[in-house]
């Protein structure tokens, strides 16, 4: 069949309507690539059908942000519904009266832990001078962790702190990150103990997201992330509607790589 015959046959109109067999579609897709006349004809048919369709629309369609919101909500909802046990009636326990007690208990545990650690460190220091340098590094890291833990306790105990759960995404369903966001001081603390260790030359990057329009803003990198170092503190002056963590090349990226989205959670969940 020549291209003129094909054009006159009416088959291309059915192709645009999606009414031909898979086999014929594949043949025509190839012909469209190879033959300029056929390509132009198909585009003209498509244009007229698109115009008819557009004339049947009644309102504006500048609602791309609504589409993005639905995508984010669906992702978050999917992970949450996967995680949620089918408990038909949940008993709601008001947490406020327990926050003070919880903070006190954590403080106590923390001081016991710190005392034990300090004693251990002192013993080792006196008995093994060669390891002094290495131990000093560990102590430095311990101090930093201690400061962060104190900050975490203060933040968690504050009435202005929201706890946001970032659920594991497709790439890492078992991951789970807690964000403590003190909206009064514009500070967040991230407990990233449930993230897998980042591969060499890669780093986790934390993003604040606003949904309309969908705008990711980098909050910072989980630098020196390791099993011992899983608490991170950042300033967050953003009006965040969601937080996400992606894996990026060392140094971080300008925009998040959604294929490497490890955890995500909305602030209203």
């Amino acid at each position: 069949m020549t291209s003129k015959e094909l054009i006159a046959s009416g088959e291309l109109e059915l192709y645009v309507a999606g009414l031909l067999s898979e086999e014929r579609n594949a043949e025509l897709a190839q012909l469209i690539q190879d033959d300029e006349d056929i390509r132009q004809e198909v585009e003209a048919i498509e244009q007229i059908v698109m115009r008819l369709a557009a004339e049947a629309s009644v309102s504006d369609t500048e609602d791309f942000n609504e589409v993005l919101k639905k995508i984010v909500k669906q992702r978050v909802g999917k992970v949450q519904s996967d995680e949620t046990e089918p408990t038909p009636k949940k008993k709601v326990i008001p947490l406020t009266p327990y926050i003070g007690w919880a903070a006190a208990a954590i403080f106590l545990m923390f001081f016991v832990y710190q005392y034990q650690t300090t004693t251990e460190v002192q013993t080792i220091l006196t008995s093994n001078i060669e390891q002094k340098e290495k131990l000093e590094e560990q102590i430095e890291s311990q101090i930093q962790n201690t400061i962060l833990k104190e900050e975490l306790l203060k933040t968690v105990a504050s009435i202005n702190t929201k706890k946001i759960n970032l659920a594991g995404q497709e790439i890492s369903p078992d991951s789970n990150v807690s964000v403590f966001w003190n909206t009064e001081k514009d500070k967040i603390i991230i407990d990233a103990s449930q993230l897998p260790e980042a591969p060499d030359s890669m780093v986790y990057q934390v993003w604040s997201l606003t949904l309309s329009p969908l705008t990711p803003t980098s909050i910072g990198l989980l630098d020196n992330y390791s099993n011992q170092n899983t608490l991170f503190s950042f300033d967050n002056p953003n009006a965040s509607e969601a937080f996400g963590i992606t894996l990026e090349p060392n140094g971080g990226s300008e925009t998040p790589n959604l294929e490497q989205l490890y955890v995500l959670g909305t602030t209203d969940s």
Binding site: M50, L52, A53, A54, E55, A56, S57, V58, S59, T61, D63, F64
Partner: peptide, 11 residues
């Protein structure tokens, strides 16, 4: 494409 798709749905 949104306007065309909206129209097709509205038909």
């Amino acid at each position: 494409y949104a306007k065309n798709i909206l129209g097709a749905i509205n038909v």
